[in-house]
Design a protein around this nucleic acid. Sequence first.
DNA 1: ACCTTATATCGCGATATAGTAATATGCAAG
DNA 2: CTTGCATATTACTATATCGCGATATAAGGT
Lengths: 117, 117
Amino acid sequence: MTDAQVEEAARLFSMLAEPARLFLLRALMTGPANVGQLVERTGMKQGNVSKHLGILLGRRFVARRRQGTFVVYEIADPALFQLCELMCNRIQSDALSQAGRLVVRRKNQAQVSGNKT
Amino acid sequence: MTDAQVEEAARLFSMLAEPARLFLLRALMTGPANVGQLVERTGMKQGNVSKHLGILLGRRFVARRRQGTFVVYEIADPALFQLCELMCNRIQSDALSQAGRLVVRRKNQAQVSGNKT
DNA sequence: ACCTTATATCGCGATATAGTAATATGCAAG
DNA sequence: CTTGCATATTACTATATCGCGATATAAGGT
């Protein structure tokens, strides 16, 4: 793993570091869609949608094809599903352990200070 | 997958979207290390190393423990290995297909224009 | 050719975050 | 307790990029 490759990895991760792009990708998870549909589904402005799709396209995370007057985008990199799944799992388990910690804290408080809420 | 969770995912990805932090994580892949060692290995300034370690710590990507006057960090989230592996694979295959494309381009040029460098 | 719809791009103000130098804090030895 | 080393934090400048409004390009129909 060279330094240059690490920097490239950072650039790839930064593609996913933006809520707007993740919303678009989420909207594409169920299948291809054109720009207008993505504008609808995400509530983002059209210019914004186009811009972010262009960024994703530049890194080949999505692919593009024309269909008459529409332009249809779709997910082009299967790794995206795995990446998102990993992060989602992490968020889930974070939420769980956070919940657990809260419970523990309550128990401790109960036993130490007699639950004086 | 709620919108809030998507935003959280973006925040997590943004932790990995920074070369400096990936360099630190790479240096930690082989095992725990203290700040001074990480400064040596990465060539980054001490303040910067501390700052980024603090950020990674905040998201529980790394863990910290004191050892006398030193502070030892280590990777705390196994998902990191999988995430990095996925991105590395992608970079590899990108490099390969890019190389392939260059070869094809040369062939085409050779056959079309008689290889005029 | 012109108009309409769909998509892409441009310029801008606002915001976020990196890196640096300087300084503060924590801990152990004498 | 003070000194010295290891680490953390702060204040600051510089850079990147987001979202927006406006505008440009592309394609089809009349």
